[in-house]
Design a binder for these strands. Sequence first.
DNA 1: CGCGGATTTGAATCTATTCAATAAGAGTGG
DNA 2: CCACTCTTATTGAATAGATTCAAATCCGCG
Lengths: 218, 218
Amino acid sequence: MRHLCVPEGLTAEETGKLEDVISATRAVRRGDALFRAGDAFESLYAIRSGSIKTVVSREGGREQVTGLHLGGDALGLDGIGENRHMCTAIALEDSSVCIVPYSSFERMCRESGSIQRRLHQMMSREIVRETNQLTTLGSLRADERVARLLLDLSARFTRRGYAAAEFTLRMTREEIGSYLGITLETVSRTLSRFQARGLIDAHGKLIRIRDFAGLRAI
Amino acid sequence: MRHLCVPEGLTAEETGKLEDVISATRAVRRGDALFRAGDAFESLYAIRSGSIKTVVSREGGREQVTGLHLGGDALGLDGIGENRHMCTAIALEDSSVCIVPYSSFERMCRESGSIQRRLHQMMSREIVRETNQLTTLGSLRADERVARLLLDLSARFTRRGYAAAEFTLRMTREEIGSYLGITLETVSRTLSRFQARGLIDAHGKLIRIRDFAGLRAI
DNA sequence: CGCGGATTTGAATCTATTCAATAAGAGTGG
DNA sequence: CCACTCTTATTGAATAGATTCAAATCCGCG
């Protein structure tokens, strides 16, 4: 199922319809953009494999990472409102996405209540995800932010069938800092401190969580 | 139109259908909750009059303001994903909302493409609004955050037909700080500094913007 | 008019940033 | 495959910005 980007809970017929709508897939190489802020909005995307960051450019050429999307996540929901994308999506590693033309998808939503419900759930969850990120940026100290990111990633990898305790950060320290609203130096220092306290093993981008309870307690 | 919470761009027939769905209105007194995190999700809401904050409770009883909603704004989109509300909505002043039962609304979306599109746009714009707030919390200094809030409120009041330069903050300094990820003292100090520089007139909650360009330049 | 919450302001403290220098890796071409 | 280079990461020291704690004032409301 996963490789078709099809969510569970649909009838065979609905699944068939969805497959018709998912017209194609696209490979995105590490560093390449799936879409850019300002691009005309045509399609939604679902990540088949790999990982993709979304960034918003702020005046002065500075960019902020606003989202971190893994396999199975939807991408492009921000474009519906104004018919053009409001952020830029860049692959953190060689990735592959399903392309879901929005007009066909919209039509399908009218035909199938389950599919409509799926879309609404996807969008609602995206809203909740961002609300959570708002609380991270709005009220946590740097070490709490980093701990929360590690635990979040661990949970998301687990749900995808990967190891809970060991994973590769696909982002640089700078991108992590941008996502967490802190500087790259603070990210680095915090990871070092976590390592010194025996909470994690960090070898560059490879992270192993040694003490989940300890991380949660921060 | 506004008092029926009906968005523009619909045919008369569609407007009629919408009016059928909007079953009732509800008055919410200042300080009262429209819904609370954990409540079963039944309805969406549109603000008829007044203003409402959304807050998320963090462990330790601390609350963070994650949204600030004015007349015409939708509320409750966060509940769709898990069938229960994920945040608490509290009136900042005596307010009135339209109640839109979600099940009927969902059905209507299947019958009318325009209405469906409206809902999708609403949700997408909510995502973009939160993305913007993420960039505020993630990369701006305290004075930039306050300036951005004032300009944002000014723009939103303007769109609603009120004066651009003068408005009443319905939130306390503490709520503003929570929304902006800074302390109430910093909010107060920043407003004082803006006043000293001739950018605004602030008398408690009443704000008059004297120098838009100056605020934007911060 | 008086009370209690809200706001303002000051001073000390602390966290995170900035600047800087070094080290470690990743990628490239010989 | 190795040397070279450029990017990324780590760490230190000084600084800046925001927080915390505290006290005084303001204001709305009963």
